[in-house]
């Protein structure tokens, strides 16, 4: 897999303030790369430099192997930006919005029409060509916001918090579109401070804080920073029937303790053995009252490493 995007020693200063601090990373083709970090961590600044909205103070960015500062037109043409805040014209129809921006990317004539229709279909606004965004719901506006960024079929799509402040239904729609775009061959950079979203769709994640990448990898790798085990607590009615030895035979299980009608199992985190454990308990005729699995999530990773919550 080749690198779609490569960032080396990227730094951005605003006066004395260092928004992005000597950041280096590579995004490979076909990834959904997540930027996870609290507000003000430097995600948007990084993204703005990738999409040529800001100039870097230091460091280089390569898109598809070409330096974006030296090949600005090439870089801009191959990137689609979905800004954090809605960036659409309320006084132009959905079709006109998409068509205008696609036109700026050099699409003309029949091709322009086709791609515009295609983009609107893609975000589920195929029946709203002539409607004005001022009459749209928040979610529809967000979708139009995405359509404006994809009509020119960019290689790399940058989405900056695309799900802020919308209803769950539109959110799911957008997450699904992100996956669909990825299936169609787009590489995607996705920033969010919603841990669940990033965990759900991103193939690789960088945790950003104070302008630095403090951890990077797949979500499993990130969680493994904290611990490689998980705790499974199963409440049962009676302790008599439980055979500790048979539970220990289950792959991944390290220790088993039984106390106060509670089976406490410590297991390797990456092994998905909850089903087997429960089946074993049922075979032992245990009456299960509650099941609780405590595995680390990205939020705990962030909290442990930085001492702060993502949504501070």
């Amino acid at each position: 897999m080749s690198n779609v995007l490569e960032i080396r020693n990227l730094t951005k200063k605003f006066g004395d303030f260092i928004a992005v601090d000597n950041m280096s990373l590579a995004v490979r083709e076909g990834e959904i790369f997540g930027f996870l970090g609290a507000n003000g961590a430097g995600k948007s600044t990084t993204i703005n430099m990738i999409s040529s909205l800001l100039r870097s103070t230091k460091g280089e960015i390569d898109l598809l192997g070409k330096n974006i500062a030296k090949n600005a037109k090439f870089a801009k043409s191959n990137i689609g930006v979905v800004p954090q805040d809605l960036a659409i014209y309320e006084d132009m129809t959905a079709y006109e919005n998409v068509s205008f921006f696609a036109g700026l990317y050099g699409l003309r004539g029949e091709q322009l029409k086709e791609r515009t229709v295609e983009a609107l279909e893609f975000v589920g606004l195929g029946d709203k060509h002539k409607a004005y965004p001022k009459n749209f719901s928040g979610g529809m506006k967000r979708r139009l916001n995405i359509a404006c960024a994809i009509a020119h079929r960019p290689k790399l799509i940058i989405m900056d918090e695309p799900t802020v402040g919308i209803d769950p239904q539109s959110r799911n729609y957008i997450l699904n579109s992100v996956r669909k775009l990825n299936d169609m061959g787009c590489t995607i950079i996705y920033t969010s401070h919603y841990m669940e979203e990033v965990e759900e769709i991103c193939t690789r994640i960088a945790i950003v804080d104070h302008g630095k990448i403090i951890a990077e990898g797949t979500k499993e790798q990130l969680k493994a920073i904290i611990t490689d085990t998980k705790d499974i607590w199963i409440g049962i009615k009676s302790e008599d029937e439980i055979k500790v030895e048979s539970l220990k035979q289950i792959p991944g299980v390290a220790t088993v303790r039984i106390e106060d009608q509670m089976v406490m199992i410590n297991s390797k985190a990456e092994v998905n053995n909850l089903n087997q454990i429960i089946q074993q308990l049922i075979r032992d005729r245990a009456e299960i009252r509650s099941v609780e699995e405590q595995a680390p999530n990205l939020e705990t990773v962030f909290l442990t490493l930085t001492g702060r919550n993502l949504r501070d």
Binding site: H210, K212, I214, L305, T306, D312
Partner: peptide
Amino acid sequence: TVIVDGARGFSVT
């Protein structure tokens, strides 16, 4: 890496 934060008190991680 080092994270320096000054939001609530000063912390260096």
